[in-house]
């Protein structure tokens, strides 16, 4: 049996510290283990520099410029940051905004809250699927095939699938016809679409696959021999899950949650189509200011969104201390 605790694993961020004696030894033999790091990271680093870092810097620069009718004026102003946080009438008892946060912060908050809800739902719905693929399906070929089947809806353009929501969930949609034919309801229900319920369901449906993948990968690497051994020692299925499977799948869970978290925080299209535009997310706010060419304010919103995403990702990586779990 393989001893997992002892095996050498690199952490998610960098490898584990290498003992000084090993380093010395490596130096002595003049043989570096593995390909040189520099060559491995250079192409991607260069790519990211050109297509991510430089544009990102220009976004940051924009956020300090002034938006005038007809273009940006180079400047060094904090007015858009102030506009983001400051709420007119915050201290005025008479004002409707008395002691309420600015709409942008509130939108970020509600986006965050909603994201958290959907993440939990995705985990609940997706984990058993990953478990099924990794533990119940024996052959690699069927694992891949069944996993790919879950990916297929993604290969139809999102914009096309979005159009199909209405005939599916609308008042005269397929689901309502089904409910009426089965005598579950006697007249069409309207809460399926353009409602928080429909919106939540849609998001789970669209993004759950993103967490199935990584969890599936972590689970499939668990050696069946350990599970067998645990069973032989009389562990109940619940114990096995709590003590072995659960902890060993945590990295996959963390990575899946990062995927879903980041995508949902920036989500804007589903809100329009499935919620009928009846909510705003930080993504729609950015889009609305982009659409009126107020790029500095769109940039401020984007930077605040990125900041909160970064915090979220760090928190996820903290909760699941990946280096230790592995």
């Amino acid at each position: 049996m393989q001893d997992f605790a002892q095996a050498q694993h690199s952490g998610l961020i960098g490898g584990q510290p290498v003992g000084p004696s090993q380093v010395a030894e490596a130096r002595k033999t003049r043989r570096e283990v593995g390909f040189p790091v520099g060559w491995l990271v250079a192409p991607a680093t260069l790519w990211l520099l050109v297509f991510l870092v430089l544009p990102l810097i220009s976004i940051i620069v924009f956020s300090f410029w002034t938006s005038a009718k007809g273009g940006l004026v180079p400047d060094l102003t904090l007015q858009y940051y102030a506009g983001y946080f400051y709420n007119e009438g915050f201290f005025d008892q008479e004002h409707r905004n008395f002691l309420t946060l600015s709409v942008f912060i509130r939108t970020l908050g509600s986006t965050f809250y909603f994201t958290a809800v959907v993440m939990v739902l995705c985990l609940i719905v997706g984990y058993p699927i990953a478990y099924f693929l990794a533990m119940q399906v024996q052959s690699f070929k069927w694992q891949m095939a069944l996993f790919l089947v879950c990916m297929v809806p993604f290969w139809t353009s999102y914009l096309i699938r979005a159009v199909a929501w209405l005939p599916m969930l609308g008042r005269r949609g397929l689901l309502n016809s089904l409910l009426i034919n089965l005598d579950i309801v006697d007249k069409p229900v309207s809460f399926l679409l353009y409602s928080e319920f429909g919106y939540t369901m849609a998001l789970v449906q669209i993004y759950v696959v993103l967490c199935v993948g990584p969890i599936f990968f972590s689970l499939s690497k668990i050696d069946p021999a350990i599970l067998e051994a645990a069973r032989d020692m009389g562990a109940t299925p619940f114990q096995i899950f709590r003590e072995i499977i659960g902890p060993l799948s945590l990295p996959g869970v963390a990575i899946g949650m990062i995927f879903i978290f980041v995508i949902l925080m920036g989500e804007f299209a589903t809100a329009v189509v499935v919620y009928g535009g009846k909510t705003s997310t930080t993504g729609t706010v950015i889009l609305n200011y982009y659409a009126i060419a107020n790029y500095p304010f769109a940039a401020v919103n984007a930077l605040m969104l990125m900041l909160s995403m970064m915090i979220g990702v760090v928190v996820i990586l903290r909760i699941v201390d990946i280096r230790k779990e592995l």
């Binding site: 159009v163 209405l166 005939p167 609308g170 008042r171 005269r172 949609g173 309207s190 679409l193 353009y194 329009v272 189509v273 009928g276 535009g277 009846k278």
Partner: peptide, 19 residues
């Protein structure tokens, strides 16, 4: 409000489907 539409096509579908 039942919904807020953004594209031409959405406005058509909202009415055709009886929403």
């Amino acid at each position: 409000f039942r919904a807020f539409w953004e594209t031409f096509g959405q406005s058509v579908n909202l009415m055709v489907s009886g929403e």
